[in-house]
Nucleic acid binder design. Structure first.
Lengths: 133, 133
DNA sequence: TCTCTTGTGTTACTTTATAACATCACAGTA
DNA sequence: TACTGTGATGTTATAAAGTAACACAAGAGA
């Protein structure tokens, strides 16, 4: 039953790669049931956990959904810009900004370990003000 | 059955005031069932939605939980520092920081409307390095 | 071959959240 | 007083998200 090393992780990654929008665990599950009819949520969540641990994907807390990471090697030091119109997500590296956020939290002696920085709005393509109108 | 204007909202607020840690919707539900044995999730979620809309409470996306807001009048322009040790949450006003986050997102033409900025870590009281050891 | 570790299968369940429709309470007003 | 409109709440049912616990399989190395 267990095929080989991290097969599920790779399959989940591949499905995520086919989408440029974040996918929920259950959307992934539904899609993967084409190949694995008996697939259970547990399996998906385990794969997702492992992928997050190795920095390959990112969980968007405010969407309860997952996306591929463009910058795998940067820890959690990024900002996610989420377009509420088209659903697109832009991962933006901003180490200085994350430092500023940490510094702000640290003012009261807080020691940060993980950052959740998600901005909702409209992406350039969906924003009416600029090119269209 | 419906008592009067926003009664549920006030009751939910009162329960939240009795806790200094964030509460999940179902924790609130359980607590409020002491007074209202037949209370349904729907009712709680409606009250929570209304309270969020008027800025009285804040939803912590990464905890799926809700806290009282200290700074009701500041829109979403705040940073939440969440202690993973004791569960305490500090709401910190940081308009300049939020502006910086917006500016960073705006670099690609993104137009921000809502900010989710949550920092996990250890609060001063739980951090071993400083006073204790 | 043995054994250890890691990943996966399986079953069942908990927690979180929403949809759809009925009903009630208050305000305004006729 | 009765009428009516609106918004909050009640009620029922279900969807969506996530986890626990235990069993088994597949490689890796001894």
């Amino acid at each position: 039953m267990a095929r080989r090393k991290g097969k599920m992780q790779e399959e989940v990654l591949e499905v995520l790669r086919r989408h440029d929008q974040p996918q929920t665990a259950y959307a992934l599950l539904a899609e993967m049931r084409a190949d694995h009819p008996l697939l259970a949520p547990t399996t998906i969540y385990r794969a997702l956990d492992a992928l997050m641990e190795r920095g390959a994907i990112h969980r968007l807390e405010s969407l309860k959904a997952f996306v591929i990471r463009r910058h795998e090697d940067q820890g959690d030091a990024c900002l996610m810009a989420i377009c509420d119109e088209c659903g697109a997500v832009e991962e933006r590296l901003a180490p200085r900004l994350i430092d500023d956020v940490s510094a702000e939290a640290a003012k009261s002696g807080f020691a940060p370990t993980r950052h959740v920085i998600e901005v909702h709005g409209r992406c350039a393509g969906c924003e009416p003000g600029d090119t269209a109108r």
